[in-house]
C-alpha cells in the first residue's frame, strides 16, 4: 500500500538519458490517470454492493501528479485510488515476471495499456514504483502481454466505447479507450454536440452546445446519484428527452434547454393513471422532486 506517498515514474532508454520526460508522454500520463480512476471506480462498486454508481464527481475529484495523490482529492476516495495504483503496478510486475500470471484486473482495465506506454520503443521502459518497493517495468513486451490478456477475455462489448484496431483477433491499438456506464449522462449529452440542424429527414433543430453543457452540469450537480439514470435522446425541437421505464410505469421528461424547464409526464401503461407537471430546472427543489418521483416509480424509494 502506497499510503499518500509518491509514485516514482522513470523512463529508461537512450532517449531519456537527460532525465527529462518528453511532452509526447503526457498522453500516457493522462491514460494512466484514466486507468487508475477506472480501477478505483471498480473497487468502490465492488466494496459498496448497494451502490450502482460512484459518487458524483468521483473522477473529477481525483487529482494525480507524479508526486502522488494531491491533497485536494476527496478524502473518502483516496483509499480506492491508492489501491488502484497498487493494482496497476502489481499487474505490470506480475506480467513482467510471468506471462501467464493472473494480474488481478478486469480486461477492460487492461485495455488502457493501449495508450499507456504507446510511445515506448524497443529497449525503453516506463518504471512505476513506490518508495521501498521494487519498481514495475512496463516495456513494449509487457504492454503487449497485458493487452493480449484484455483481448483473450473479450473486452469488447456494446456498452463500451473503443476505437480499436485489431490484427486477426489480437487487439493491437486503440486511439481512445474509455469504458463508460452505458447511461452516463455527460457522455451521452456530449454525443449530441455532433448533431447539425436538419438532422431528422432534413428538419430538426440540433441541441445547442451551451444548453447541453448546462444540462450535463445540472444532472451531475443536482440529480441524486442513487436515482436511476435516464435514457436521453434529442428532440426535434432542439431539446433533450429523458425517459425511464419501470414495468408499466413510463416517464417522459421533455427538457427545454433554452428555457431550462421540463415537462414531466408519467403514465401507467395498464391504466388511465397519469400525471403532468412543468418543472423549473433552475430550482434545486425540482431536482429533488424529480429524483424522488423516479425512485418511487422504480420502486427503489
Amino acid at each position: 500500500m502506497s499510503g499518500a506517498g509518491f509514485i516514482q515514474l522513470r523512463l529508461t532508454g537512450p532517449r531519456f538519458e537527460d532525465g527529462q520526460i518528453p511532452l509526447e508522454f503526457l498522453g500516457d500520463l493522462a491514460a494512466l490517470r484514466e486507468m487508475i480512476i477506472d480501477v478505483a471506480r471498480w473497487r468502490f462498486l465492488q466494496e459498496n454492493p448497494g451502490r450502482h454508481r460512484v459518487p458524483k464527481g468521483f473522477a473529477e475529484s481525483v487529482s494525480l501528479n507524479l508526486a502522488g495523490v494531491e491533497k485536494g482529492s476527496a478524502a473518502p476516495i483516496i483509499p480506492y485510488v491508492e489501491r488502484a495504483m497498487d493494482s496497476v503496478v502489481d499487474a505490470i510486475s506480475s506480467t513482467g515476471s510471468d506471462e501467464g500470471a493472473d494480474v488481478g484486473l478486469e480486461p477492460s482495465h487492461l485495455a488502457h495499456f493501449s495508450r499507456v506506454g504507446r510511445g515506448l520503443k524497443d529497449g525503453e521502459a516506463m518504471e512505476f514504483g513506490f518508495p521501498g518497493r521494487r519498481p514495475a517495468r512496463l516495456t513494449q513486451e509487457t504492454r503487449h502481454r497485458l493487452l493480449s490478456k484484455a483481448t483473450a477475455n473479450g473486452i469488447i462489448n456494446r456498452e463500451a466505447r473503443y476505437d480499436v484496431e485489431f490484427r486477426g483477433n489480437q487487439l493491437v491499438e486503440a486511439n481512445e479507450v474509455s469504458l463508460l456506464d452505458p447511461l452516463d449522462v455527460s457522455a451521452r449529452l456530449e454525443e449530441f454536440k455532433n448533431m447539425k440542424n436538419g438532422w431528422f429527414e432534413g428538419d430538426g433543430i440540433a441541441p445547442s452546445p451551451d444548453g447541453l453543457d448546462w444540462l450535463a452540469s445540472e444532472f451531475k450537480r443536482q440529480y441524486a446519484d442513487d436515482a436511476p439514470s435516464p435514457r436521453l435522446y434529442p428532440t426535434f425541437e432542439g431539446g433533450v428527452q429523458a425517459e425511464w421505464s419501470f414495468g408499466s410505469n413510463a416517464i417522459v421528461l421533455e427538457i427545454d434547454l433554452s428555457e431550462r424547464t421540463a415537462d414531466w409526464f408519467w403514465f401507467d401503461r395498464d391504466s388511465d393513471a397519469e400525471e403532468e407537471r412543468r418543472l423549473n430546472l433552475d430550482d434545486g427543489d425540482e431536482w429533488v422532486w424529480l429524483a424522488n418521483e423516479v425512485r418511487s416509480k422504480a420502486g427503489t424509494e
Binding site: R188, W199, G204, P234
Partner: peptide, 17 residues
C-alpha cells in the same frame, strides 16, 4: 440518435410538424 444502450425512444413513433 434515437437509440441508447439498445433501447429506442418513443419518439420513433411520434409525429413531427
Amino acid at each position: 440518435d434515437f437509440v441508447q444502450a439498445g433501447t429506442i425512444t418513443s419518439q420513433v413513433f411520434r409525429l413531427t410538424p
